[in-house]
Design a protein around this nucleic acid. Structure first.
Length: 479
DNA sequence: TTTTGAGTTGTTCGA
DNA sequence: GTCGAACAACTCAAA
């Protein structure tokens, strides 16, 4: 007797079993399933994942594979151009259908559309689902049908008319088809080999759905309440740290929304502020979908004329956490060590690169893309353009962060700086955010030799601010 | 079509 | 030390 035709379940950025629409729909067909992940770095225009993101992906795939094995199945791993791999595997397994959850990057949409056409030509059903967003970009628009370009009306509209339904659980039991041959996880070479720089990542994170759920529950139950006050203090665990879990779809924004509400936190200032950050994620995807070159080109074309005069060695100093501004350097070192940076510090570091060093925001975007475990094309592009002032609904160009006053305001005891810049650990008080202002005796007592142990500022902020304002002045009236 | 109110996250200066 | 204004208009979204 011939076995029934299977349904291929293609995992992408939805590496979870709970609240997974494609998985639930595939299970509901009653057909045996083949679970699949394709590492596709080669599709035209693909943004190849950065190194930190690949490390996360390795462990997230390992976690998903274990969860699937516990249900009696297995996760098939492949690599290559998905527009070749998916139709080939459908033929090989005799699949009657391929199900997946949608992505929104231009290159992925082009690729997925081609796969749909190819599968249909082969007589294979192709169905896609919403597994990553509360509102897909084509379902929300202004009264005139235009895409939203300003966050607040977008967020109001989302809350008024697009409340997410209750998240679904895991499917009860699953019926598996024989798994075709795939690659071993190690063959994908997602982890660093020589040298192994991932120690800080291992110490900081546990990728996977179970860890994501635990983190969400802990956050919703307690820290969400104070989020509005503590989220700006990088020395404190005030944020949810869910960003990489959300990026890889180990958890859905709908699950986050309902967990916050179930804990009663939508009635607290903190909970509402936190949910608005979920709103910013949605807004970024909305922008990326409607303006697909958001990661590549200035949203405001007048910035095409901007003179980015920053030098290579300044970019390198920023990347290495050696600018001489402690709050900036602490953030850049936290990023290098853990694959993540506190959001407040991301803004300070980004403002410094763009407005103090006059380095093109795309250089900063590229560095974050390579080093962040939560690197996300939509959020990364929208946030860098926001800081640069070139984006939709962007910060006004004269808003230039002062790295000293930001440090004093948001790291008042200097604990964050001391944690990431051990060579300054002996400093106390105001000197921690501006060591070059400390007198010789203070520096000596702290064991700090400026210019030797820790650099003098590579640029004078007050002068840099004036230069940035002058530079922006030249493009202000451009078309 | 025109009008109107509003717009994530800051800094500096002068009273 | 604290407070309000200036920074620069401009675009968006809705009435």
């Amino acid at each position: 007797m011939t076995s029934p035709a299977p349904v291929l379940l293609w995992f992408r950025q939805d590496l979870r079993l709970a609240d997974n629409p494609a998985l639930l729909a595939a299970a509901a067909t009653g057909a045996p399933l083949v679970a699949l992940y394709v590492l596709d770095d080669v599709s035209p225009g693909a943004w190849r994942r950065g190194a930190a993101s690949r490390w996360w992906l390795h462990h997230s795939l390992a976690s998903l594979a274990r969860d699937i094995e516990a249900l009696g199945g297995s996760l098939v791993l492949k690599q290559g151009d998905a527009s070749q791999v998916i139709p080939a595997l459908a033929r090989q397994t005799g699949a009657r259908a391929v199900f997946w959850n949608r992505r929104y990057e231009a290159w992925a949409r082009r690729r997925d559309e081609a796969i749909k056409v190819s599968l249909k030509q082969d007589g294979v059903e192709a169905r896609s689902f919403n597994g990553s967003l509360i509102v897909e970009p084509w379902t929300i628009a202004t009264k005139t049908g235009a895409p939203y370009k300003v966050f607040t009306p977008f967020w109001r509209s989302l809350q008024a008319g697009h409340e997410p339904s209750e998240p679904a659980g895991r499917p009860g039991r699953l019926n598996w088809a024989p798994a075709p041959q795939g690659d071993a996880l190690d063959a994908l070479k997602l982890r660093p080999a020589k040298p192994d720089w991932a120690g800080g990542l291992r110490d900081s994170w546990t990728p996977g759905e179970a860890s994501a759920q635990a983190r969400l529950e802990a956050f919703a139950a307690s820290r969400a309440r104070a989020y509005a006050d503590t989220r700006n203090l990088p020395a404190q665990p005030g944020t949810s740290r869910l960003s990489p879990h959300l990026h890889f779809g180990e958890i859905s924004p709908r699950q986050v929304w309902h967990a916050v509400r179930a804990a009663g936190q939508d009635a607290t200032e903190g909970g509402r502020t936190y949910l608005s950050e979920i709103g910013w994620r949605e807004f970024s995807y909305n922008l990326l979908y409607h303006f697909p070159d958001l990661p590549d080109a200035n949203f405001q074309a007048r910035f095409d004329k901007f003179a980015w005069t920053g030098r290579k060695e300044q970019l390198t100093a920023w990347q290495n956490g050696l600018t001489g501004y402690p709050i900036v350097d602490a953030g850049m070192r936290e990023l290098w060590h853990t694959g993540w940076m506190h959001n407040r510090v991301r803004m300070i570091a980004a403002s410094f690169l763009i407005k103090d060093l006059l380095v093109d925001w795309r250089q900063g975007q590229a560095w974050f893309w390579d080093t962040l475990v939560d690197a996300d094309l939509a959020s990364n592009a929208a946030s860098w353009q926001w800081t640069a002032g070139s984006g939709a609904d962007a910060a006004p160009y004269f808003r230039i962060f002062n790295p000293v006053s930001q440090g004093e305001k948001f790291d008042p005891d200097g604990d964050y700086v001391r944690k990431w810049i051990p060579e300054l650990a002996g400093l106390r008080g105001k000197a921690i955010h501006a060591p070059w202002t400390a007198d010789r005796a203070t520096l000596a007592r702290a064991g700090v030799r400026l210019g030797t142990d820790y650099p003098m500022p590579i640029i004078d902020h007050a002068e840099a601010r004036k230069a940035a304002l002058a530079a922006f002045e030249t493009i202000k009236d451009a078309a």
